[in-house]
């Protein structure tokens, strides 16, 4: 079975400003700010990557242990999904391995 890919909620407004992502949800005008590592994860969530794949990139970028990167990514993703900022989308058939 294909793993879900992470994608931004399309209703949001967001911008990476000097490497840090600011997100606004239109329904309630709540502004969210991500730190540099969370912003890195956010930028990788392009509808083509799973949390595991993003964690690999995070580990390489910040030179941290893969397990640590995976745990942090999962925690962040759970948090962003709970706020409906990130969504999981099933991968398009055959678009990626995994």
């Amino acid at each position: 079975m294909t793993e879900p890919r992470l994608v931004h909620n399309p209703l949001l407004a967001w911008r990476a400003i000097e490497g840090e992502v600011v997100i606004i949800s239109p329904e309630d005008s709540v502004v969210h700010e991500l730190n540099a590592t969370a912003s890195f994860v956010w930028m990788q969530a392009n509808g083509e990557r799973t949390p595991e794949e993003i964690a690999v990139l995070l580990a390489a970028e910040y030179e941290v242990a893969p397990e640590e990167a995976l745990a942090d990514t999962r925690e962040l993703v759970a948090h962003l999904e709970a706020k409906r900022l990130l969504l999981s989308s099933p991968a398009a058939e055959g678009s990626r391995h995994g």
């Binding site: 400003i17 000097e18 005008s29 502004v31 969210h32 700010e33």
Partner: peptide, 22 residues
């Protein structure tokens, strides 16, 4: 929009760095 700590930081950052936020 009401001022919040996050908005305040964003505004401060963009004013200081002269970024066209708006």
């Amino acid at each position: 929009m009401a001022e919040t700590p996050v908005m305040d930081r964003l505004i401060r950052r963009t004013v200081e760095q002269h970024l066209p936020l708006n």
